[in-house]
Simulated assay, not measured.
Amino acid sequence: MKNGLSLGDSAVIETTVTEEMFAQFEGVVVHPAYSTVSMVYHMEWAARKLILPYLEEQEEGVGGAVSLKHVGMATLGSNIRIEAVVSELTPGRVLAKVEVRHGNRVIGLGEVKQIILNKQLIQEKLTPHVF
């Protein structure tokens, strides 16, 4: 990774809850509210925004872990703000604390770990080996 990413750096995503973000399984809506699956996606996206400016051309970030508590609801049309803050930096790893808000209410808290790998190594692991 390039130098410059520091503890406390942050990245923000803002979005509006759509029907596609509702809690649903196999296309059947369980309830018309912002789903945990959508929250995970947005948390990972915000954390990814932290590392993008610092990746070398041959590097990529991969998800290492996500933990979250979904503690509040948001309905159709609600404005959501997701903020990721670098909380730990080690060689090849970035940990971010993430907070999801609907207005001034916290509706989600969590952490996202990203592992920085060489793109060639990732490709080798994805390529089936024939013996």
Rank of each mutant, 00 (worst) to 15 (best):
Val112Ser: 04
Pro53Leu: 01
Ser10Ala: 10
Arg101Phe: 08
Leu117Asn: 09
Val86Asn: 09
Phe131His: 12
Val40Gly: 06
Leu5Lys: 01
Ala33Asn: 09
Leu95Met: 08
Asn104Asp: 13
Ala65Ser: 15
Glu99Asn: 04
Val94Asn: 10
Leu7Ala: 13
Gly72Glu: 04
Glu60Cys: 13
Thr127Ile: 00
Ala65Gln: 12
Leu95Ser: 08
Lys49Asp: 09
Glu44Trp: 00
Glu19Ile: 10
Lys49Tyr: 06
Lys113Glu: 13
Glu124Ala: 13
Ile82Lys: 12
Ile116Tyr: 01
Gly8Asn: 10
Phe131Asn: 11
Ile115Val: 15
Glu99Pro: 00
Phe25Trp: 13
Asn79Gly: 14
Val29Tyr: 04
Ile107Trp: 00
Ala96Glu: 02
Gln120Cys: 09
Val106Gly: 01
Arg81Ile: 10
Glu20His: 05
Thr127Tyr: 01
Leu55Met: 02
Glu88Phe: 01
Ala47His: 04
Glu14Asn: 13
Leu121Trp: 07
Lys119Trp: 03
Glu88Asp: 08
Val12Trp: 04
Val94Lys: 08
Arg93Glu: 13
Leu5Thr: 02
Val30Gln: 14
Thr16Glu: 15
Glu56Trp: 05
Thr16Ala: 14
Glu60Phe: 03
Leu76Val: 02
Thr127Gly: 00
Gly4Pro: 02
Gly110Ser: 02
Trp45Glu: 15
Leu95Gln: 10
Ala84Phe: 08
Met21Ser: 11
Thr90Met: 07
Val40Met: 12
Lys69Glu: 14
Val28Lys: 14
Gly61Leu: 07
His70Ser: 00
Ile51Cys: 07
Leu68Cys: 05
Ser78Asp: 15
Glu124Gly: 04
Pro128Ser: 02
Met39Leu: 06
Ala46Gly: 03
Ile51Ser: 05
Ser10Pro: 00
Pro91Trp: 01
Gly63Val: 11
Val86Ala: 14
